[in-house]
Amino acid sequence: MTHPMRELRFEDVTVRYGHTTAVDGVSLTVPAGHVVGLVGESGSGKSTLARAAVGLAPMHGGRILLDGEPVPTRGRNRPLQMVFQDPYSSLDPRMSIGESVAEAIPPGASRADRRAEVGRLLELVHLDPARAAARPSELSGGQRQRVALARALAGRPAVVIADEITSALDVSIQGAVLNLVRELQRELGLSMLFISHNLAVVRYVATHVAVMHHGRIVEEGPTAQVLAAPDHDYTRELLAAVPGTQHTKGSPR
């Protein structure tokens, strides 16, 4: 990793689409080497915030900083990388998974170096490097999401943004992807903004959590503290809605 993990800071970020304000003056910090969970319902602006960070959504105000420097959203040097929600549409069906990963490797490396790097990255996400020539259609949803993670890591990011990366997956596969995220975080010291609507998932991977509602952050803090003693009504509502926390019908929980 050439980029050491760095701190990502959103300062008063605003994103508008026409007359709709999707993100309304959001300030949020992802400390170096930490996973910050961002929760909220669809339309709350959490995905838009992520897309603004990587230059896929236009910003109308505020700044996004990496260790105090503005994040570049043009050119080859992209210290912010994103993993998308749907692994069925985030990989080009016409390219082998090896090519998809190799494409994200910064230019300058020799062909042999690239191949070695692709192998290393695939191994990192527990895929057999021998399968680099496989097309996405030969892979299961969970395997595709691993490839997407490997591609994000290939750009040697300072921070990774994961946008609902498990919600399109079957529960049996979701666990493996979450384990992988935690393992990568521990081994590489990854800084990560982990977006999800599932509080149980966020609780499992994130040390900090921020709750977004109608384009604003309504509460943030250490995960254990926010979940144990929520301050904001909306956070309480989210907590009450996690399946299995209320009206359990005589289960031993």
Binding site: I173, R182, E183, L199, R203
Partner: peptide, 17 residues
Amino acid sequence: AAVPDMHTDLDAPLATV
């Protein structure tokens, strides 16, 4: 076992299929 809930042990890896 694969589904994390609000009581899942944070120190152990999730069970997978």
